[in-house]
């Protein structure tokens, strides 16, 4: 049996919005410790890993491990209904997700916090997904950059109007984002900056050794759809591994995007 209730239903909406364009179908794995998902995009270039710990839910009960295969676009459509209803407060809908006994459908219930006489029920079909689970090793990264997520989003968007790929280089100077296209080149350098009013506005660069990697901007731009989840983003780079772009979900977990670099032909 699985029962979970999330007071901040908007959080799940933001999670779905951040991953639905990258991954069509995915298994949500539920265990006593929480709700997780791991899925690759169809071309196996990027991987998303989501964790929502049980402590972050208002109510969480999972008696046995289960996997619920869902079409993420359909799930996002259902969750959008919570926000589009005038009576349901978009920022604080209560949400319950309960799979049916046969686990072929999932029932999603939105309850308005301030008008508790209204309940909206949605039932979504589950699907069998033969997904592969990948082992992600613990690794030492050459460089870890933490910066405001809005800044990272803006850089990716700006550079993608000039080129298709971004070279991310970390040196003593800072972190450099570069691109090149038919119309010219662009370089953005962010230096470490901890003298800011709010901690989330800081740029913090931990460098064990200089690193420079090339990535497809199309994917980076897709990852930045998670910007509403967190004020900061952490970018972990190693010359031997996919980059990790992580958005922490306050007190609950994270959404991590792994992207394979472009490599020498």
């Amino acid at each position: 049996m699985l029962e979970l209730r999330l007071v901040q239903g908007s959080l799940l909406k933001k999670v779905l919005e951040s991953i639905k364009d990258l991954v069509n179908d995915a298994n949500f794995d539920c265990s006593a410790t929480g709700f997780s998902l791991q899925a690759m995009d169809s071309s196996h270039v990027a991987l998303v890993a989501l964790l929502l710990r049980s402590e972050g839910f208002e109510h969480y009960r999972c008696d046995r491990n289960m996997s619920m295969g869902m079409n993420l676009n359909n799930m996002a459509k259902m969750l959008k209904c919570a926000g589009n209803d005038d009576i349901i407060t978009p920022s604080r809908p209560m949400m319950a997700v309960t799979p049916s006994p046969s686990c072929s459908k999932v029932q999603v219930r939105f309850t308005c916090c301030f008008a508790q006489d209204k309940i909206a029920d949605f039932e979504m079909k589950l699907m069998d997904i033969d997904s592969e689970h990948l082992g992600i090793p613990e690794a030492e990264y050459h460089a870890i950059v933490r910066m405001p997520s809005s800044e990272f989003s803006r850089i990716c968007k700006d550079l993608s109007s000039i080129g298709d790929t971004v070279v991310i280089s970390v040196t003593k100077e800072g972190v450099r984002f570069s691109t090149r296209g038919d119309i010219g080149t662009a370089n953005v350098v962010c230096r470490q900056n901890t003298t800011v009013d709010k901690p989330e506005e800081a740029t913090i660069i931990e460098m064990n050794e200089p690193v420079s990697l090339t990535f497809a901007l199309r994917y980076m731009n897709s990852f930045t759809k998670a910007t509403p989840l967190s004020n900061t983003v952490t970018i972990s780079l190693s010359s031997e591994l996919p980059v990790v772009v992580e958005y922490k979900i306050a007190e609950m977990g994270y959404v991590r995007f792994y992207l394979a670099p472009k490599i020498e032909d």
Binding site: S43, H44, L134, G135, I136, A260, K262, D265
Partner: peptide, 14 residues
């Protein structure tokens, strides 16, 4: 020119 790498060449199936 560079070609796009693949996640499966970094992470193994479990």
């Amino acid at each position: 020119d560079r070609k796009q790498g693949n996640i499966l060449s970094f992470f193994k199936r479990v």
